[in-house]
Amino acid sequence: MSFHFITGLPRSGSTLLAALLRQNPRFHADMTSGLGSLVSGAMQIMSPGGDVGSTVSEKQRKDILRGLFDNYYQSLTDRPVVVDTNRQWASRMTLINRLFPEARVIACVRDLSWVVDSLELQVRNNPYHFTRLFGPNNQGTVFGRAEALMGHDALIGRAYTGLKEAFYGEHSASLLVIEYDLLAKAPQKIMPLVYKFLGEPDYAHDFENVEYDAPEYDEALGVSGLHKVRPKVEFLSRRTILPPDLFKRFQGMEFWRDLNATQANVITTKPANSEENSTDDLR
């Protein structure tokens, strides 16, 4: 069993990508798993000052963490390629590299203004209760909710800074960044590039019949429909529901479009002086 990983920003296509990959009989892919939390918990216990920090060797730590991955999926799938999804993998690139030197990490991204907009839309689609995405002091207005999301250790802010770390880090060559708009508009062009990056043979996907939903998980968060994927892969253009000043506040933060200080592979729109999208090849 080989492992790869999906990470990136919320509301940026990670569930869609997993839903597409799981059409391939070689791949097991899903929404965010509990593996990231298990790994973090084990690392905490084995760290200096932890419950067993002084009783386990470096090799034991590595073996235990590697064993978590193998054992987590042993009874879940017999497919040879596992793609685990968790936003924290972006900030665990060194760990991934040490445990799985051949692993690749795919980060799904999107203009931050539209990430905030998409989450706000989900909140408004569930008007009869508060969501667990926010604390009790941040349920009042869209301005408070947006600021809460962008906090350093909050849903968007933590994912954004973790991805930035991966993008400029020493293991960036094993990272592929995909912009949501391009995946939604041209999946038939993007998926072959994904397989090329993973070193896997191409697969004929059905982009008209994609299935994924996690109603129980979403209802527990108080955001029904958060992980529901529409059957047809397409980009639906609409006006933002954010006030103009709030929408503008988060524009221009797409660091992944500057390729000068990274070895990461990026599938993104080209700079403003280009009229084409960079979907023809990996960087």
Rank of each mutant, 00 (worst) to 15 (best):
P10L: 02
G13C: 03
L16V: 09
A18G: 03
L20K: 00
L21P: 03
P25N: 02
R26C: 00
G34L: 02
G50L: 07
D51S: 14
S54L: 13
T55S: 15
T55A: 15
D63P: 07
Y72R: 04
Y73A: 07
L76H: 02
R79A: 02
P80A: 05
V81T: 07
V83N: 00
N86W: 07
R92H: 11
T94Q: 15
I96R: 03
N97G: 11
L99D: 07
F100E: 07
D117M: 09
L119C: 08
R124Q: 15
N126M: 11
T141C: 11
V142W: 01
F143R: 10
G151K: 09
H152N: 14
D153Q: 13
G157M: 05
G157V: 03
Y160H: 12
Y160S: 06
T161I: 11
G162T: 03
K164W: 00
F167L: 08
G169W: 06
E170S: 15
S172E: 07
S172H: 09
S172I: 07
S174Y: 05
Q188C: 03
K189Y: 00
P192N: 03
Y195G: 01
Y195N: 01
G199E: 04
D202V: 05
H205W: 09
N209M: 06
Y212L: 13
E216N: 12
A220D: 12
V223N: 04
V223F: 12
K232D: 06
K232W: 01
L236P: 04
S237Y: 14
S237V: 12
T240K: 03
P244G: 05
P244L: 05
R249Y: 04
G252H: 08
L259I: 11
N260Y: 12
N265E: 13
N265Y: 10
T268D: 14
A272I: 11
A272N: 10
N273E: 14
N273M: 12
E275N: 13
S278I: 05
